[in-house]
Design a protein around this nucleic acid. Structure first.
Lengths: 207, 207
DNA sequence: TTAGTATTGACCTAATAGGTAAATGAGATG
DNA sequence: CATCTCATTTACCTATTAGGTCAATACTAA
C-alpha cells in the first residue's frame, strides 16, 4: 500500500516522515494538520497525498514503522542479563538517547498514539497496542537483582521512586535539548551528568 | 471591566469559569475554543460574550483570578518555619491537593499560561510572569535543613532527585484521579499512600 | 402596560480542514 | 523531433470551525 512511498528517494521520504511524526506527536491524530505536514516537509499537499493515500493510513503506517525501529534499535538491544537496576537504567537510557538522535520523534509519537482516544484510529490501534504492552518497559525491569538494596526498604516503592527520579532527569534533559539543534548537543556530557545522578541514587539505595 | 461577570450569580459564573479553565488548560490559548467553553458551561455563546468581552480579556482575567486564589490558598499558607524537606513536601502537597479539590484546573491553567508562546497573550503575560517567579516553587525549598542527609551526598542532586520522585508520584495520582468524579476520590487514602513514599525517601536519604 | 434586562437563534467573515481534478513539467524512449 | 510516462503543482471542492455580533424574544419589576 505504501510501496510508492517507500520507493521514494530517502531524503524526501524522511523529510515527510519526520514532519509527520513531529506534527502527530505534538498534536495527536485529530488536531494534527496534513497541511502543516506538507508545508514542513517542503512538498506540495497533492504530492504528499499521492504518496500517503490519506491521513489515517499514513498515521497507522507511521505507527508500524516506529514500532519496527523501536524493536530493532531499542527493545531487542536491551541486555536482559544485566541484573543491576542502575546498570540497566544506564543502558536503556543510553540506548534511548541513541535512538532519539536518529529519530527524534519516535518516542513521543508512540506515546501519543498509545494514549490517544481519537475515534478515527482507535479501533485500528487496539490490536497493535498489545504488542507494546508485551514490550512494555515494565517488562524490562522485573528480573532485577534487589539483594544490594538497603535492608528494611519497600522494594517496590523504592523501584518506583527510582524510576520517577530518572524520569524527572530525562524530562529535564528533553526540555533543555528541545529547540536546540541536534548537532549542538553533547551527548557525552549528558551521559556523564546522568551517571552522576545514578551514583547518587546508588549511594542512597544500596547498602 | 468584568464587573458584569462578577456580579453574576455564583453558580453560573463558576460553571463558565471552570469550563474555561479546563478548556484553556488542556488546549492552550490559541487552540481553546470559545464555542466549547460556552457549550460546556451550559450557556449560549452570545451570553457568554456578553459577560466576558472577548477571548483574550477572558483569558487574562482568569490568569489574575487564579493567581489570587493561589496566593490566598497556597503560597501564603506554606509554613516557611518548617525546615525539614520531607515535612515541607508533605505540607505543600497536602495544600496543593486541597486547592485542587476546590479548583481542579488552576495549576494546569497557570502552567499552560506560563509556558505558552501564543503571540496573542504573550505580551500581556510578561509582567505577570514575574510575580510567579517571585513565588516560584524553588523559592520555597531554599532554606531547608540538610543536616540530616547522609554524609557524602551531593545535596543539590539529592534534592533534585527527591523532587522528581515526588513529582512522579503526583503525576501518577493525577492520572489516576483524572476522569473519576471528584467526590469519589478518597484524599485521606492518597495522603497515607504519599506518606508511605515519603517514609521510604526518608529512609534512604537520611542517616 | 411598559421599561429594562437576560437570553438566544441566526447570522457574519475569515480560516482551515481533508482531499482531488486537471493541467503542467521534465525525462526517457522510439 | 514526437510521444509516453511519471512527478509535481495550481486551483479548487465541500464541510467545519473560529471569534464575534445583531436583532429579536422571554422574563421580571414597577
Amino acid at each position: 500500500m505504501f510501496s510508492k512511498f517507500m520507493s521514494l528517494e530517502t531524503e524526501r521520504r524522511d523529510a515527510i516522515m519526520n514532519a509527520a511524526l513531529r506534527e502527530f506527536a505534538s498534536k495527536g491524530f485529530d488536531e494534527a494538520s496534513t497541511n502543516v505536514i506538507a508545508k514542513e516537509s517542503g512538498v506540495s499537499k497533492p504530492l504528499m497525498f499521492h504518496y500517503v493515500n490519506n491521513k489515517k493510513d499514513f498515521f497507522l503506517f507511521l505507527y508500524d514503522y516506529c514500532m519496527e525501529i523501536l524493536e530493532a534499535e531499542y527493545f531487542s538491544k536491551v541486555d536482559v542479563d544485566e541484573k543491576d537496576l542502575f546498570e540497566r537504567l544506564r543502558q536503556t537510557s543510553l540506548l534511548k538517547m541513541q535512538v532519539m538522535q536518529k529519530h527524534p520523534w519516535i518516542f513521543d509519537f508512540i506515546r501519543v498514539a498509545t494514549l490517544t482516544d481519537s475515534e478515527a484510529v482507535n479501533n485500528e490501534l487496539i490490536e497493535r497496542r498489545k504488542r507494546v504492552e508485551k514490550n512494555s518497559l515494565e517488562r524490562f525491569y522485573n528480573d532485577i537483582d534487589t539483594s544490594r538494596f538497603r535492608d528494611n526498604l519497600n522494594i517496590e516503592k523504592a523501584k518506583e521512586l527510582i524510576f520517577w527520579a530518572v524520569g524527572g532527569y530525562a524530562e529535564k534533559i528533553l526540555s533543555r535539548v528541545k529547540g536546540s539543534e541536534v548537532d549542538s548537543i553533547n551527548f557525552d556530557d549528558i551521559q556523564n551528568e546522568f551517571d552522576g545522578y545514578l551514583d547518587e541514587l546508588r549511594k542512597v539505595y544500596y547498602k
